[in-house]
Write a protein that binds this DNA or RNA. Sequence first.
DNA 1: AAATTCGCCAACCGCTCTCAG
DNA 2: GCTGAGAGCGGTTGGCGAATT
Length: 278
Amino acid sequence: MGRPPCCDKVGIKKGPWTPEEDIILVSYIQDHGPGNWRSVPINTGLMRCSKSCRLRWTNYLRPGIKRGNFTPHEEGMIIHLQSLLGNRWAAIASYLPQRTDNDIKNYWNTHLKKKLKKYHQTTENFGNCHDLMTTSNSSIFPTYSQTSSTYASSTENISRLLEGWMRTSSSSSSPKHIAAATMDQNNMINSGSYVPASHGVFESMLSFDNLSSIAWEKSSAESAIFNGDSEGKERVESHNNPPLSMLEKWLLDEATGQAEEDLMELSGGDQCSDSVIF
DNA sequence: AAATTCGCCAACCGCTCTCAG
DNA sequence: GCTGAGAGCGGTTGGCGAATT
């Protein structure tokens, strides 16, 4: 009641975000934290609607986002979760904290869907999902390399741009410095220098042969809280009081191969579940 | 080398849910 | 309890680069 409309359609800018807009948005969120998206375009002067700001932050600027190559384990996890949860990308993304729902959705639609379809066609006479799952890190699911060179697809570029902005900026107390520092910190994760891709957190997390990966996730989530990430707070809280739901237990069982058996049970013992049949 | 087609992905659209008034 | 705005989610699309002809 009495609230102004969500966003004024007149004068709203659309299309790809520019580095300057990213800097403004990151700086603002560093100061005020995420949330209350309606106030973001008002207070920053960004000619973007609040939804666009939230999307940009959630999918690209948020700390801890990993972009590029999906590991075979990540692929397998997405397949598992999609078969269980359907196209609930946000729910699936909650089990892959470094990936956004949009990223997972795109990857599913562009890669995994086709591969599953192809696989299903070649195995429909004699194969089953069990084979699919157990070979998810073999040649059936090669690691894809994403080589996009566009600005928006590279957080490294964002970091560099911020650094460049820093050099050209004369104000030492500007929030831009805070933003740049944070982006630099994020970049350590995103670029793989902190968590090498070949020994990424997901490999270790999924294999569960090293509990340090859990500690890493907790520390990253705590870092996220420092950066105002409410999702990170949720993750920390879940670690402090871990809810071992059926699904989580199932995921934990994956390394022992129990997951595949459970999946078969959950999907009614049929071949592939409906959500992976096209 | 130029034209055309294909594939990927960032971002928008519209719907639903939640919550404040 | 009703209404309407904000937030979140999933589906879809437009633009761009890569691949092919």
